[in-house]
């Protein structure tokens, strides 16, 4: 079967081995409450990773998504507080639009001036973060000020279980949103021309142009979608932790990019799947989570994440090179 030879199958195998190993070291891993919290942690990183996957398939690297997430989150929450607005649809729509517009800016600069995405997104990330802090504010919006509708939305559980001692824990409903977005992106990538144009552009931009793809449209699709996903993830994050911190997500770029590379996407473009990315995010979150379970200092997590990124990049680069021979 072709699936068994794909990178997705290998990643799944790695995940299974890692779960068994972690379970042996610390049986607490298999507790339902731990698994639920693990899934919850997947949501925000996962949604951001979907955007990063898209950029990476197109042959670029995006480091601006965390800044866009902050912009979407902080602008919307501050506005809601200022206007005393308590709703859901409009705020999330606004966060998506803010992220999308910022993504459009990325796409415009990258396409128009034929610039390297890494440098462009480094720049826009810094500009956006600076503007948010400089123009909007630097103080956290804490739980006592957070709009109630957002907090309640973030609290929604799919179902709730009871521990022996009577306390309860549940599986967050946000996981449905995440997986829904993942399925949607998978369908778009696999079954639409715009989706395939992203792969084509990542494989060979010149060939894509010669075949007749409108590469500008592809770039806009990629970066607007990535930005919109980031904006949405940002607001979702604050509704799940009941806090809007304008300095949030610093350093998260690395985790998300590591997860996407771990999921088998190629840093050279043209390769990558949604399933792989979802699995990559799960592996990354699980390993971070189990380091905590094993009582390892959080500072060491950075070492582990960095090492995983380097290892994953090496393995995928070797794979891509072999395929070229």
């Amino acid at each position: 079967m072709r699936f068994l030879r794909s990178s997705d199958a290998i990643i799944l195998a790695i995940l299974a081995v890692a779960m068994i190993f972690i379970g042996l070291v610390n049986p607490a891993f298999w507790q339902m409450s731990n698994l639920f919290s693990l899934l919850k942690e997947n949501v925000v990183i996962g949604i951001m990773a979907l955007g990063v996957l898209l950029v990476m398939i197109s042959g670029g690297i995006d480091v601006s998504f965390t800044a866009f997430a902050v912009a979407g989150m902080y602008l919307v929450v501050r506005s809601m507080v200022a206007l005393d607005y308590n709703g859901l649809v409009l705020p999330f729509a606004s966060a998506i639009i803010i992220g999308g517009l910022l993504g459009l800016m990325n796409a415009g600069i990258i396409h128009k001036f034929k610039m390297i995405p890494l440098i462009v997104t480094l720049g826009t990330a810094s500009v956006v973060r600076g503007l948010v802090l400089g123009l909007v504010g630097t103080s956290n919006v804490n739980i006592n000020k957070m709009p109630e509708a957002l907090v309640n939305f973030g609290k929604t559980d799919l179902f709730v279980l009871e521990r022996a001692n009577g306390s309860t824990y549940g599986l967050t409903a946000m996981i449905v949103i995440y997986l829904g977005l993942a399925v949607a992106l998978h369908l778009v990538l696999k079954h639409t021309m715009i989706g395939r144009s992203v792969y084509a552009y990542g494989a060979d931009p010149e060939a894509a142009k010669r075949v007749g793809f409108s590469t500008g449209k592809t770039m806009i699709f990629v970066y607007v979608t990535a930005g919109a996903l980031a904006g949405f993830a940002g607001l979702l994050h604050s509704s799940m932790i009941w806090l809007a911190n304008p300095r949030d997500f610093v350093g998260l770029e690395l985790d998300v990019i590591a997860a996407v590379v771990l999921g088998g996407a190629s840093i050279f473009g043209g390769r990558g799947t949604v399933l792989g990315t979802v699995l990559g995010v799960f592996i990354l979150v699980m390993i971070q989570n189990s380091l905590i379970l094993m009582g390892i200092d959080t500072t060491w997590q950075r070492v582990v994440v960095g090492a995983m990124l380097v290892a994953a990049v090496t393995v995928t680069a070797l794979r891509d090179r072999r395929a070229l021979v």
């Binding site: 395939r196 494989a203 060979d204 075949v211 043209g270």
Partner: peptide, 20 residues
């Protein structure tokens, strides 16, 4: 050849037509 190296044979053949 101007083909897409990471895409399959099917796709390299069909994308053109679908685009047109």
């Amino acid at each position: 050849f101007s083909l897409f190296p990471t895409l399959t044979v099917v796709e390299n053949l069909a994308l053109n037509t679908f685009l047109r």
